[in-house]
Design a protein around this nucleic acid. Structure first.
Ligand code: FES
Ligand code: FES
Lengths: 134, 134
DNA sequence: ACTATACCCGACAAATTTAGTCTTAATTAA
DNA sequence: TTAATTAAGACTAAATTTGTCGGGTATAGT
């Protein structure tokens, strides 16, 4: 119930490796997947999500690959998670508000508070906090 | 990836309702499941978990049911979650430590930190913080 | 003693979500 | 032109969550 998914894990590993390299240098999916024994296709799709969100920049063709586009210091983990997995909520009732019991529900408010706390927490952790080498 | 499960949700609703009643009074699974439109069998199994963990006390026979056994103020949410769902970790590698990459893994330490933050957070929220009426 | 009502427990099945695969583009360096 | 790379989406497989079933045990009321 509080577990990171593979896609997030793979993305973090990838970005972490990219950050260890020189600024403008490119890293290919093949490289990362081989070095870390990550399924190529899955990592590829995940990198595409990051590219669409402009976290990384893609360069096609031979010797192509990805490089960082945004400063990881400026990216909140909340944002990062949602890029990869979509909206993040501790309970369903906040997104699909077609919950019948929404008026009578006794735990809605306190769960909402927890939800906010979790978001606060991840708003205050940057991508760089996880992917930096030091 | 950060979502409460039904079993936890149902347990919280149940405990919340029980807390609204008089101290020694009993509440049956049937009662809770009907009033909140929760699948009877699933709620029953969930209550059994709480009974085994001595969060609640079961009384068998006609007019039986459950009553609170421990003070909800004294129960950490971490404990509560783990009673219902088993060990809670942000990444698998902490429990089944048969991860090949555990030595070379670049994100292990930072993820560990997040894991600790989450646990800290839920160690500082009591069951009562969620189930109290006021 | 019998019966109805409650909790107990584990095995099963269905539904949902996550993980992984495959196929077909589009781009570009050499 | 060819090989290497990203892009995108459909598809399958595995894992997890959710819900069901069938048989127990205990006990209050009669
Ligand atoms: S069950 Fe939907 S708001 Fe509580
Ligand atoms: S992948 Fe297992 S410790 Fe990082």
């Amino acid at each position: 119930m509080l577990k990171i998914t593979r896609k997030v894990e793979y993305a973090l590993i990838a970005l972490s490796q990219m950050q260890m390299k020189e600024d403008e240098s490119l890293t290919s999916v093949k490289e990362i997947s081989q070095q870390n024994d990550i399924p190529y296709e899955l990592l590829a799709k995940t990198m595409q999500l990051l590219a669409r969100a402009e976290i990384v920049e893609a360069v096609k063709g031979p010797h192509g690959g990805y490089r960082l586009k945004k400063d990881p210091t400026e990216i909140k983990m909340t944002t990062f998670f949602e890029i990869i997995e979509g909206p993040m909520g501790f309970m369903d009732c906040y997104f699909d508000s077609n919950c019948d019991q929404i008026h009578s529900c006794s735990i809605r408010t306190p769960i909402q508070r927890i939800n906010d706390s979790i978001r606060d927490m991840f708003n205050n952790i940057s991508l760089n906090d996880i992917t930096r080498s030091v």
